[in-house]
Simulated assay, not measured.
Amino acid sequence: MNAKRRLLIVEDNKRLAENLFEYLGEDKYELDYAADGLTALHLLASHTYDVIILDIMLPGVNGLTICRRIREDLNSSVPVLMLTARDSIEDKTQAFDNGADDYLIKPFHMKELELRIQALCRRRQTNNDCITANNIRYYPGTLTVKRQDQSELQLIGYAATIFEALIRKYPDYVTYQHLSTDIWGHPDGDINVIRTHIYVLRKTLKNTYGQDMIKTLHGRGYCLDPA
C-alpha cells in the first residue's frame, strides 16, 4: 500500500481549518496544522511535506514571507498552494513571485482544492531525463534549465510545469487546455491564472537569459522561442 501524502495546513480561521481536516483527513492525507506563521516555520524546519496549503493573512509571519523563506532559506521546492480572499491580478502576481505554485480564492469548493492538491502531487513525480529544444536543455528531475554556457536556472512551482510542457511540445504550441490539464488535472482551468503563471515564467527567463523566450499565440496558447 502506498504511503499517504503528508500536507501542512497553515490557516488561522479555526472553522475553515476544521473543515479542511474533516474533508482531507481520515484515509486521504496525513495532516499537520499551524494557526500562525511562526508555528508553520517551526514545522517546516523539522518535517517534510508533499504539499503546503498556506493562507496569506496570518498572525506573526504572513503567508508570502513564509513562502519566500521556504524557497530561499529552506531551499525547498515543495508545492505551495495559497488560500486567500484576495483576487486581484496584483495579489496573484505577488504570490507567484514569492514562490507559490497555485492560488485558490476563498470561498472555494473542497473538491476543487483536492483536485489541485492531486495535480501538485503529480508534478513532483518527474524523472531525470534531459529534454532539449535548440540550445536549451531542461532536466525535469531537478527542475533545472541550462542554455549553452550561460547560468543555470532552477524553476519552482507551476513555472516548472509550464516550461516542461512548452519544451516537450517545441516547436509546436501548447494550448490553454493542455496547460490547464498539466496544472490542475482538467482542461477547464482559469485562463487568467494560466496567464499569470506565464507572466511570472516569462519574466524569470528574461531576467536570466536576457530575452523573451515564450511566444503568445492569441486564442490558441503559447510556444517556446529559444532562438
Results as ranks from 00 to 15, higher is better:
Thr126Pro: 05
Thr126Gln: 00
Thr126Lys: 00
Asn128Pro: 05
Asp129Phe: 15
Asp129Lys: 14
Ile131Gln: 02
Asn134Ser: 04
Arg137Gln: 12
Tyr138Thr: 05
Tyr139Lys: 12
Tyr139Leu: 13
Tyr139Trp: 15
Pro140Gly: 11
Gly141Thr: 02
Thr142Trp: 10
Thr142Phe: 10
Leu143Trp: 14
Leu143Ile: 12
Thr144Pro: 14
Thr144Asp: 15
Thr144His: 14
Arg147Ser: 12
Arg147Val: 12
Arg147Leu: 13
Gln148Asp: 08
Gln150Arg: 09
Ser151Asp: 12
Ser151Pro: 06
Glu152Cys: 14
Leu153Glu: 08
Leu153Trp: 13
Gln154Trp: 14
Leu155Val: 00
Leu155Pro: 03
Leu155Lys: 00
Gly157Val: 03
Gly157Leu: 01
Gly157Asp: 00
Gly157Pro: 01
Tyr158Glu: 12
Ala159Met: 02
Ile162Phe: 04
Ile162Asn: 06
Glu164Tyr: 04
Ala165Ile: 08
Ala165Gln: 10
Ala165Trp: 03
Leu166Lys: 11
Leu166Thr: 08
Leu166Gly: 08
Ile167Asn: 06
Ile167Met: 01
Ile167Val: 00
Arg168Pro: 03
Arg168Tyr: 01
Lys169Gly: 01
Tyr170Gly: 07
Tyr170Cys: 11
Asp172Leu: 12
Val174Pro: 14
Val174Gln: 12
Thr175Phe: 13
Tyr176Val: 02
Tyr176Trp: 00
Tyr176Ile: 02
Tyr176Cys: 00
Gln177Pro: 04
Gln177Val: 03
Gln177Arg: 09
Gln177Asn: 09
His178Leu: 06
Leu179Lys: 14
Leu179Asp: 13
Leu179Cys: 15
Ser180Gly: 10
Ser180Leu: 11
Thr181Asn: 13
Thr181Met: 10
Ile183Asn: 09
Trp184Asn: 00
Gly185Ile: 00
His186Ser: 03
Pro187Asn: 06
Pro187Ala: 07
Asp188Pro: 00
Asp188Gly: 02
Gly189Glu: 08
Gly189Ile: 08
Asp190Val: 15
Asp190Ile: 15
Asp190Arg: 15
Asp190Thr: 15
Val193His: 06
Ile194Gln: 01
Ile194Asp: 02
Ile194Ser: 04
Ile194Thr: 07
Ile194Asn: 01
Arg195Glu: 12
Arg195Asn: 11
Arg195Cys: 11
Thr196Cys: 00
Thr196Met: 01
His197Phe: 07
Ile198Trp: 02
Val200His: 13
Val200Leu: 10
Val200Ser: 09
Leu201His: 02
Lys203Pro: 03
Lys203Ile: 04
Thr204Gly: 06
Thr204Asn: 06
Leu205Thr: 07
Leu205Ala: 10
Leu205Tyr: 09
Lys206Phe: 07
